[in-house]
Write a protein that binds this DNA or RNA. Structure first.
Lengths: 177, 177
DNA sequence: GTTAGTGCAAACCTTTTGCAGCTCT
DNA sequence: AGAGCTGCAAAAGGTTTGCACTAAC
């Protein structure tokens, strides 16, 4: 039976990313504490710049470079996953804790909304790749781009308006590049 | 029944990417012809720089910018897919025609080999996302990183050697950044 | 007291943009 | 002829690096 929705138990047995950083030779600095908490708490998908701005509210002296270095560390330690979200808004990377169960990301190319898909098909895909190829999966990422249910309706309307010689509405503001 | 391996029929009914470029207002220039042929023919996953170098062999005057512009065009026209291959070798993007059936990419994080997975689970995942969310999928991308069967064995050996105080072998040469 | 981590400045890689001139159709 | 495309130079966005100083253990 297929299951949608977030399961409660963390997949790695870790209670927080912050705890997992306690490894030999690693130091839990003020800056790292702030960043880890922001990542763990955040419901959104944060990119380095966004995370930097949030961190700056708590510690105005924090440097952008520290954010990048911390993210790199977390990525190497498999504590966060790196996403692109189909490069909808530029080429930056987004980050999320691994405390949640594996899921796919659906990015609406019209409104930018990101939805998450949890469910059996993902686990099945992973299992099949592992068994068929003997491939040991460390990270997996499924991202799809398209139109969310809401925007599909709006697009039909837009097409009709366009056909009626009306100029198409401007797309939503994006980060310029 | 699950099916592995490349099916023959192209998913979009197109015979080549080159043909598909014949749209109103678009011109099939010498440079584009070269690039399209390279992309269609290439078995590997090419990034912009690699494609540029290959194109330069045929037309030494071609400019890197033209490569980027052509790739952007093809991406917009849904004629190629953009991949990251888990950023194994840097942050550039890789491209492949859509003439092949949908597949996932498995990137070995030790040797860099990229394998492709075709099969039912992918189609099932797509179908489920579409039906459950009413999401209209335009592009889908599944990438997994881990260790290929071959490297798993080698890693065990490396671990044993490391335990015996021998310094671990240097990782394979990557693009510096 | 050591060693890891930080901030700063500067570099780096990849990709995009502005513009004058060229070339497909 | 004219819109579309190219090459060149220069810029931009995102990320990394070198180094002296600071702080966690």
């Amino acid at each position: 039976m297929t299951c949608y929705g977030l399961k409660e138990q963390p997949p790695m047995g870790a209670r927080s990313t912050q705890e997992s950083l306690k490894k030999p030779g690693l130091r839990l600095t003020r800056q790292r504490r702030i960043l880890l908490e922001l990542i763990d708490r955040s419901g959104h998908h944060l990119d380095a710049e966004h995370l930097y701005r949030l961190a700056k509210e708590r510690d105005p002296g924090i440097n952008r470079v520290t954010v990048y270095r911390t993210l790199k560390l977390l990525k190497q330690g498999q504590l966060v996953d790196e996403l692109d979200l189909m490069h909808y808004d530029g080429d930056q990377h987004y980050y999320e804790t691994r405390l949640k169960q594996e899921h796919a990301h659906m990015v609406c190319l019209r409104c930018g909304k990101v939805e998450e898909f949890f469910g059996d098909p993902l686990r099945k895909l992973r299992r099949e790749i592992e068994t068929h190829f003997g491939f040991q999966i460390l990270v997996a990422r499924t991202e799809v781009g398209g139109y969310c249910a809401h925007c599909q309706v709006l697009r039909v309307r837009e097409m009709q308006e366009a056909a009626a010689q009306a100029p198409p509405p401007a797309p939503p503001a994006r980060r310029r590049r």
